[in-house]
Design a binder for these strands. Structure first.
Lengths: 345, 345
DNA sequence: TTGAAAGCGCTAACAC
DNA sequence: GTGTTAGCGCTTTCAA
């Protein structure tokens, strides 16, 4: 049993079977309005019956679009590779793209050299119609290049230091306000925060939300803020450790990242603190992980998969000329949980 | 300043500039041995000078290869999206592929429906030359299909229930043996284990390694094994919780997964155990995360990025006809650390 | 509303 | 060794 021959049904085959010309098949399949409804239906039927699948290479060669978009992972080493959201973001992107019959091509540019190669390639030959990317704003040369060249691009997470860039982000400020307000609501008087890098939009915005919530209650900033250098578990641990030493009376903590929260929690337990008896805690999480039982903590749930999907949708709209530069903010949800951690309840 | 025109330098342009025919340019650029060295050099030089970049669509249409390979994420929802290794695996794959000028196309098949669509597409039209995939062996219909159709595929992690499939995996057995032996070496007398799903190669193999190490010391299995239903943090927590209740005298634990270890650690702390004073602990980790300070635990370090790279390399070799079905086992390293967790040292 | 003809940029025979 | 000649399977004018 040798490999079955891949049926190479072409538009010409469909045309022959349907009794029309090959260009008419092309028009019908591409939704050209000039094709008579009866013809279209006959063609669609024949194509389906014959199991026709378009040859992307031919389409790309003849047409003006590549029908594929690129996803660039350009974050600095320590960030992205510890970014637990990448798979989910990809799932969201993929969902949207496959619905529109676009291919998703992956590019990894961890260092300057990779970026240069990408820049060179893109500048000379358009391999994809546009880019989606996750960046930590450190190694942003590729993004800058894309914007200069006016190559369509949509970024995940508000990028700092760029004007006129399309991006999709979750409501970081709103989420941080809700988290902080929640801690105050349940009676905390000394609320601290571990925020993400000041070089990132989410890091800055979540801190802003925390401060806004304090201000709204007429509380003054007690300085119990740790600005993590990255989003990793280590920084969460280090941050919590430091906060506990500098602010022994802390009775509430908001850790603005999933791994930061894990690390912070670890430090709390190491210090013998019981959550929420000694210290109330709110973290960040993927909304898809909302059912997670450990840590059974209050968290701000972000729609990560939808973030990816919306990024793709926004890019496709731009490519279709329906939209110029634009932003999109996805709502988050505060997910309060009343479990105890640090000892058995 | 409008968008600079993408220079559409074709082989014909290079040919003209170099004073040869277009097919000769094709041969030179593709390393055809029949081209005279002097001609080749002249052509390469001209191409470089003109900034020539090949048109992949044209190459694919005219040739017999698509010059791109697919990466399929086919794991069951709960598994993959919590799989912390995906980004690193992708990095490794990308490294190898870009070195060979191949594109990486992503496919996501979370459910039966996605898989059917993929199967249908692949059976009718070859979009990529081969596939790389991560699977949890539950939703393995796509893999089965690929094998039946003799589509080249390389799997990451030993897949259960398949014969004649190429895969790359780390030395799970060796790692588990080393981990268990280490616990015994440092004086543990009651060593338990939390292993991964019995439907996965690594889950089975790591358990086998643990048992082999016990046997080698003449110890009999004390039954202190928790078989996690997935690799998530929750299962680690649940497993540790259960082990502690059923085996109160446990003084050593081997958690055979990164998230399993995190969860297990959490449960240990929750139960008031101090690591390593009360219980010795060995987890699994990405070797790239070896510098991680929390948890500062002994671990089996896996070369995850290299796993991806080797997967790609193996597939490319198969496509080049250099190799048939084959396996590759990457060595792991036991990384003993002597830190304390659960209280300040 | 449809067909005929041209051509996208490359690879692959086949000559010389 | 190198040039000539044919397509690959589409999209896109241009006629009809």
């Amino acid at each position: 049993m040798s490999r079955p021959t891949i049926s190479t049904i072409t538009m010409a085959d469909v045309a022959r079977a349907a009794g029309v010309s090959q260009p008419t098949v092309s028009r019908a399949l591409n939704g050209d309005a000039r094709v008579a409804t009866s013809t279209r239906l006959a063609i669609l039927d024949t194509a389906e019956r014959l199991g026709y699948v378009i040859n992307r290479a031919a389409r790309t060669l003849a047409g003006s679009s590549t029908n594929s978009i690129g996803f660039v992972i350009a974050e600095h080493e320590a960030h992205v590779w510890g970014n637990p959201y990448i798979p989910r973001i990809i799932a969201g992107i993929s969902k949207e793209l496959s619905a529109q019959d676009k291919q998703l091509v992956l590019f990894v540019a961890q260092n300057r050299h990779d970026q240069d190669r990408l820049i060179k390639d893109v500048s000379r030959r358009r391999t994809v119609d546009g880019f989606l990317m996750i960046t930590d704003n450190r190694s942003d040369r590729f993004l800058r290049f894309l914007l200069e060249q006016q190559v369509p691009v949509v970024v995940g997470g508000r990028p700092l230091g760029f004007k006129q860039v399309s991006y999709v982000d979750v409501d970081n400020i709103g989420g941080a306000v809700a988290a902080t307000a929640h801690l105050l609501d349940v009676g905390c008087t000394q609320v601290g925060m571990i925020t993400g890098p000041r070089t990132t939009g989410p890091g800055v915005d979540r801190l802003a939300g925390y401060r806004r919530a304090l201000r709204a209650r007429g509380l003054k900033d007690n300085g119990a803020v740790y600005r993590a250098k990255d989003w990793g578990i280590d920084e969460g641990y280090a941050g919590m450790h430091r906060l506990l030493h500098e602010h022994p009376k802390l009775d509430g903590v908001f850790a603005a990242g999933e791994l930061l929260a894990l690390g912070a929690l670890s430090a709390l337990r190491t210090a013998g603190k019981v959550v929420p008896d000694d210290v109330r805690f709110v973290g960040f999480d993927d909304s898809a992980a909302a059912s997670r039982s450990d840590p059974p903590l209050s968290c701000v749930a972000q729609p990560v998969e939808e973030l990816g999907q919306q990024m793709a949708a926004l890019l496709l709209r731009r490519l279709a000329g329906e939209e110029k530069t634009g932003h999109l903010m996805l709502p988050v949800q505060l997910n309060p949980r009343a479990s105890s951690v640090g000892k058995d309840r």
